[in-house]
């Protein structure tokens, strides 16, 4: 564990708490893409098939939290606050993402086993899971400030993982190409968002696309 990784994980936790706060406070999931949340649930379930393999208490607790919270968010969006979700805004075709990620995982993996291919699939899927949310944002052209804080924390989490990998490469000679490439793509997808967040939200303005 190093500073970047711990901060990244805490940002990831924070992003989920901010999302839960947004839904509970406004009693609405408007502006949130159900498809992105569904993809995150798929990511966590397929990645943490090794849940029973002991690495550390920290590792196990975080895995349980990520799986449980992602499913709870689906429950909030699909059942509790169903009326506030507008599917006509959430039109990104996730079938293509799922198909492409599965195909890539079958071809580019470390070991061709069931668990390993699903782990690789989850890494690729996480990289693009935010696309329905960003697509929704670009369609509506604006977002509630708390929603942008959620997205910022989520993007920062991945950005910090990049620093963690650089750190681990130099201190432990840790190499993980699959995770690196997917993580770099995932962070790059946030670049436009980061720019507008910095320009507008951090200066007290509403998030609006130019």
């Amino acid at each position: 564990m190093n500073f970047f990784r711990l901060t990244a994980d805490l940002m990831h936790l924070l992003s989920i708490f901010v999302l839960l706060l947004k839904i509970q406070k406004t009693r609405s999931c408007s502006g949130i893409s159900f498809k992105t949340q569904l993809l995150y649930a798929v990511v966590f379930v397929t990645r943490y098939l090794d849940l029973l393999k002991w690495i550390s208490l920290y590792n196990t607790l975080m895995k349980i939290f990520f799986i449980a919270s992602s499913i709870y968010i689906l429950y909030l969006m699909k059942i509790k606050f169903r009326a506030t979700y507008d599917p006509s805004q959430d039109t990104f075709r996730i079938e293509f993402l799922l198909g492409a990620c599965l195909l890539l995982a079958l071809v580019f993996n470390y070991t061709f086993t069931f668990i390993e291919v699903l782990w690789t699939f989850s890494i690729y899927l996480e990289a693009v899971a935010i696309l329905p949310q960003l697509f929704m944002l670009s369609r509506t052209g604006e977002a509630e400030t708390i929603t942008t804080h959620y997205l910022f924390a989520l993007g920062a989490y991945r950005g910090l993982y990049l620093l963690n990998w650089i750190w681990r490469f130099y201190t432990e000679h840790h190499i993980d190409w699959i995770v690196w490439v997917a993580g770099a793509i995932q962070t790059a997808l946030y670049s436009d968002f980061f720019y507008i967040y910095y320009k507008k939200v951090l200066h007290g303005q509403k998030f609006e696309l130019p």
Binding site: I55, K63, Y110, Y161, H173, H174
Partner: peptide, 10 residues
């Protein structure tokens, strides 16, 4: 090249 990818990261 050492392909060390123990799944210790989340």
């Amino acid at each position: 090249e050492q392909l060390k990818h123990e799944k210790d990261e989340l």
